[in-house]
Write a protein that binds this DNA or RNA. Structure first.
Lengths: 211, 211
DNA sequence: ATTGGGCAGTAACTAATGTTACAATTCAGT
DNA sequence: ACTGAATTGTAACATTAGTTACTGCCCAAT
């Protein structure tokens, strides 16, 4: 585990901290589609991603969803810290977007390290910084953009995260992520196909050019 | 200044920190409507609110606005910290909602105190926590609610912040805050009036019952 | 008293998004 | 091969929100 840590967090943390993390952290592998956290769950640990990606979503009372952002290697979940601090339940849902490797750190350590290691403080602040900006970005998107533009951004991000020009999702799944309806998404995707920017297939979409 | 600090931050910070803040901070009074920060401004200091309220807004390239939240006594602006950390320009706009008293602290001190005082760390984390939740709340509102409900929430918040049943805003101003159009807001306000929940007047709205 | 600008009311229309319904196709499991 | 569920395409329609245009009103400045 210490080697994985050095590879992905060596540029962020000093050796002493890496050692501490290795000592108290537990290594986990989760398969694609695995729900890491649901609304209302209590937060037991803080995830440090090694590889893969985690999809983080917001959900309202009716179960309507909205994709917030993805966590990738070298990142952690501010929402988790958020919950730890306030001793509150999770207000978000997190699902593995791909097979993912990560290290879980007990929440008590967080505070300890915050006092002890400047690099950890910087990491935590940086993480808050990034997440806050990402949530603001989503807010911009929802508040100021129309669905066709949001869909384009969504497809681009999918291509980036999965590092593949083929998107393995149904229209319904995309509709959930964007909090829209399947018919609307099918309609807009068809337009993109007619523009020659994507190819539609059953269960997957081939991206040609989104720029 | 030290007395103001003790009154509003005494329950958060130890005496030594209060003293430090008093030493390096500068006391400011800003009138209602004063723009504290515009998009693209560089951040020079971190505000600690003593009294009054600051309205924090998001703005897109076309100048369309959206109200994010209000800062009140005992609070600070995470966005500011956000900017300091990343050495980036402001991505938000801040305007005094009422006459406001506050203390500006140079950003360099932030990092120093984060290492030195646990109470300061907790304050900064708590602040991030609160702001992140507020932005999520606005996101919920924009993503999941219709304009009539958003308008209701807006009016409730206005009443709370200004501690008055009379809202001194034009329909146009409300439309800007909610990123809608004047006609739409007039239409919905008229419906609320017909339901007997508000009374409409020129330049102000009397709130009867919003529950 | 007159004038002009800001504010609010309203109608008519457009655009965007969401909903309902149904058909056609694919595909896995039997 | 058959069946049923999941997926996609499409039309028709409903709802919400945004736009344009015009009116009357209030009020402050001249």
């Amino acid at each position: 585990m210490i080697q994985e840590l050095r590879d992905h967090y060596g540029h962020l943390f000093e050796e002493a901290l890496l050692q501490e993390i290795a000592q108290v952290g537990t290594f986990k592998e989760v398969p694609e589609g695995f729900t890491m956290m649901a609304i209302g769950d209590y937060v037991r640990g803080m995830p440090l991603l090694i590889s893969g990606a985690i999809k983080v979503m917001r959900e309202d009372k009716e179960g309507d969803e909205l994709l917030l952002y993805y966590l990738e290697s070298g990142e952690t979940c501010s929402m988790t810290m958020n919950c730890c601090m306030g001793q509150t339940k999770s207000e978000i849902k997190a699902v593995a977007e791909k097979d993912t490797k990560l290290i879980m750190v007990p929440v008590q350590k967080m505070e300890e390290w915050t006092a002890k290691y400047k690099s950890w403080r910087d990491f935590v602040f940086q993480s808050y910084h990034t997440r806050l900006n990402e949530v603001l970005h989503i807010l911009d998107s929802v508040a100021f953009e129309k669905m066709d533009q949001r869909l384009l951004n969504y497809l681009k991000e999918k291509v980036r995260i999965n590092n593949s020009d083929t998107i393995h999702n149904t229209h319904q799944e995309i509709a959930y992520d964007l909090h829209s309806s399947r018919v609307v998404i099918s309609r807009l995707l068809k337009k993109l196909e007619q523009m020659g920017r994507i190819e539609l297939h059953r269960n997957h979409i081939k991206v040609i050019n989104l720029d």
